[in-house]
Design a binder for these strands. Sequence first.
DNA 1: GCTGAGGTCCGCCAGT
DNA 2: AGACTGGCGGACCTCA
Length: 329
Amino acid sequence: MHQVVVLALDGVIPFELGIPSRIFGAARGPAEEPLYRVVTATLDGAPVMTEAGFSITAQHGSDALAEADTVVIPPSRAHEPVKERLPLDPSIVAAFGRIPPGARIASICTASYLLAAAGLLDGRPATTHWRESENFQRLFPRVAVDANVLFVDNGSVLTSAGVASGVDLCLHLVRRDHGSDVANQVARRCVVPPWRDGGQAQFIERPVPGPVGATTAATRAWALEQLHRPLTLAELAAHAGMSVRTFTRRFREETGVTLGQWLTGQRVALACRLLETSDLAIDHVADRAGFGTAGSLRHHLRHSLGVSPAHYRRTFRTSRTPTATAITA
DNA sequence: GCTGAGGTCCGCCAGT
DNA sequence: AGACTGGCGGACCTCA
């Protein structure tokens, strides 16, 4: 079973600490079987004092990280030395070293400081609590900070904005692993919205070409300008100066997804932006985002976000407020 | 929801 | 020998 390890560091904030076990723990398969095992660990297995003044006793030490498929780090006081430009505590570095190479690592709120200090966010987009974004960007110029999103998914490394966006992040991971239906059920069980209303982008998915030096990066950037028209594998391979086979292989290695999945993800994101910011008819949105028909757009939007285009637009537009940025705080 | 055409993905394998 | 490339073909997916 997929194992989620929540790493509770000294001074952890109890609210965020509880989010992963609540969300992942509520995910059920067709026969009501749990889909995740969630365990909480501390660095040495000893109790830690929370930011709320009570201590918690976890049943695992950082050795549990070696068995993790997903590691979630809630915010704590542990990032304070990083803000003073001190190196990451060796015990945290050692704990990170135990995480298997294939595992995902996700931070909630200011825990993104720890991921950045460990170099996991270099050259990648990320987010953090909006009040910290300026300072974060100053400390980590190699990270592309976006304070206007609820979370950023880089495939194996994920960051979320303040506090409750941890819920959105965990729901996103459930959706990624098991689809919208399971994620929506979790949301219903936990009485939270399956996706968040708000005056800012709901999420971004691999928004920029991947690692620096990636050989398909220029072609991906080029493709982003051409989303409105049909793009074929052969055409993109030719643009990259590779055979179709090599391009397919490189693309998978560099992005973690296939070309088709990536294109669909980018087109869904573009359609969402058009739905949010324009009054274009649905079939015009479909056309501009490169979906052949409105039916195709509907299919993909429902698959990715669990809602229809009209529903998405209605929710987003009616909830927009001038103080929207405060919603993620 | 079904269907057929065309596109995509990826294991396999030979060539460099 | 080992790494990389690219063609082939069958399974699978997407779209209208």
